[in-house]
Design a protein around this nucleic acid. Structure first.
Lengths: 347, 347
DNA sequence: CGATATTACGAAACCGGTTTCGGAATTTCC
DNA sequence: GGAAATTCCGAAACCGGTTTCGTAATATCG
């Protein structure tokens, strides 16, 4: 591997001049620059990034912290899209992406985020799934900038900064309105655990707003709680259909629960959407392949990762001190699992 | 940030001694070591990894190269499991994981693997999807060790080293035998493009071996070609069912095509598995949620990542010069989409 | 043409560790 | 008790860049 000293010798200049010439800085004559560039090319000189970083006091690495919430993680098709969006944009800004994934909580082992505390990164992007106490806490005392992908509340209740998330609220609102526009007035919901994650909390808020928008009072019996898994969607169907006044549509706050619900609905001898409409949220791969294909809400995973990377780069370069939370649009994807309610013959 | 000089001063020794003491090396008295350790603790000293790497000529970073094959990538639920398996194990070995994902082929831009050529990594893991000419080529002239996750043939046709993959052949073989044991003798196949990716080629080989095992001659009309997408599975169904002697079971070499096939089978008024059995390969999330749940083959993504990381670590530390390809077991998952063929009443 | 302003270049310091090697201090051995 | 062997420790070099700052060379100006 050629070093800057080799290049300097070949070009007949000092290493300092080589450094300046190759960085295209001032105070180097055109003739000298040309000689240096030629010498560097001949030697196939590639500056050692480690040495450069030591001098720069910058590492060129951005950390990506993922909480260990297995169900969320494995169920979330967007994680890859996030990563792709980030990696794509970070490469452009000349950053690396360093993954930090903690182990399953059982095996504590060493601090999963240790490397991020060693001054090994210039900034970080944190995926927050539970609204706060997770990995973000691990970065609270760090001096570098970081961005939250998701929702997070400050301890004092104030709204957070440096936040990027999808319009979960708006997506749920519009999806509920889609159901309403088909004629549904009793729409059951399969939500997450009572102690909600940020995103699902927002989705539920969207549903509530849509119901309130029609002047209806929210019927609490239409609100069931799952745990993100298909099985919990499956069980919620029984709870909803055994009501005295069952819903004509079910809105599951994620696709997996929606797919579980469809499966149970079929078992009970009902058809989707003829007897009961079902909608989800996420637009996972399975949604389009389901029988029937699932009406759902898509969020722009790639763009979220891209925006996070863009903004983090600006924070690192101090072109920006901070930003208010940035909300990316969601899109209602209408497929075949939703239709007008059946005339109220059967109950 | 405290440096080694600060610690040295506080402990009343030289930086060299601090370095040795903290690295637990010989030639440091117990008393001195204790003083150094105490001083380091008081100052919350964390060695600067960049400086350390510069001196060590090691970066502590391992690259992960992903080819840009969007369909493969986005459809592959194992990518995350790979990554998790790798990240998990690499963290234990004190390595970082650096992602290198090229852009969509249109936007050439800068060399997506540039960082991996700059001596920025100590080793790499390459995800190969097309049997050879992809990212592995980018590393051919590098001096550090790297491992292929997938299949790859040497140019001279010899079998490759440093290869890790699942037992695609065996999985397909056993799945086909499962269908045969149910009584199926005409099993249609939905394969990949004629120019196959490594893994699908192996799966097809497994199918062929199972058919040959019964003494049957392979009927070429039962072999159709898709392109990994559900739509191609959908279309393949028509081709297979319109045969003079249609199959009683369909084995799609990936789950997505299997799910597309099921969808088309339903449309044609047939039932799965009563009229036609369907099986896939991969065990994607959607497989378990499908109607009916899909019989398929699962591969150990996490373990593959973990093994890759383990072996790469040993290659980097030169505890190992190379290894023959390592094959991890696959498992047939029998669900409700396969059953005994219907008695040959309807044709 | 001489004084001044500007530019080009390089020596040296620096980033923060690790490692080599030599000398001093201590221990071992006869 | 003195020679030899061993142990501790630190000065200095090194990894490979960047940056500062002083000086030499050149350009500008009256």
């Amino acid at each position: 591997m050629a070093t800057i000293y080799d290049v300097a010798e070949r070009a007949g200049v000092s290493p300092a001049t080589v450094s300046k010439a190759l960085a295209n800085r001032q105070h180097v004559s055109a003739a000298t620059r040309a000689r240096v560039v030629a010498a560097a090319a001949e030697l196939a000189f590639i500056p050692n990034p480690i040495a450069r970083h030591l001098s720069n006091r910058r590492t060129g690495v951005v950390g990506f912290l993922i909480p260990y919430v297995p169900d969320y993680l494995f169920s979330d098709p967007f994680l890859l899209e996030f990563i792709r969006g980030m990696a794509d944009n970070l490469a452009e800004q000349d950053f690396h992406l360093l993954l930090a994934m903690p182990r399953p909580s059982g095996e504590s082992g060493s601090d999963p985020y240790r490397r991020l505390r060693q001054g090994m990164v210039d900034g970080a992007i944190v995926l927050e799934s539970d609204g706060g106490s997770g990995p973000a806490a691990a970065l609270a005392d760090q001096t570098y900038p970081w961005i939250t992908l998701g929702y997070r509340r400050e301890d004092d209740g104030s709204s957070s900064r440096n936040l990027i998330h999808a319009d979960d609220y708006g997506g749920a609102l519009r999806l509920t309105r889609h159901l309403q526009s088909l004629g549904h007035t009793r729409i059951g919901v399969i939500s997450g655990p009572h102690r909600l994650m940020g995103a699902l909390e927002e989705r539920l808020r969207g549903y509530r707003a849509a119901v309130a928008g029609t002047g209806q009072r929210l019927d609490p019996t239409l609100l069931t709680y799952g745990d993100f898994t298909p099985e919990s969607g499956y069980r919620a169907v029984d709870q909803l259909l055994d009501l005295d006044a069952p819903p004509t549509a079910i809105f599951a706050l994620n696709d997996r629960m929606a797919l579980g619900a469809i499966s149970r609905i079929h078992e009970r001898g009902l058809r989707v959407p003829a007897d009961l409409s079902v909608a989800g949220f996420d637009d996972v791969q399975a949604a389009a392949l389901a029988v029937p294909p699932l009406t759902t809400v898509r969020q722009p995973g790639f763009d979220m990762g891209l925006r996070a990377a863009t903004l983090l780069g600006r924070l690192i370069r101090q072109e920006l001190a901070q930003f208010e939370s940035e909300v990316l649009p969601t899109e209602v994807i209408v497929r075949a699992s939703t239709a007008a309610p059946a005339p109220p013959i059967r109950r």
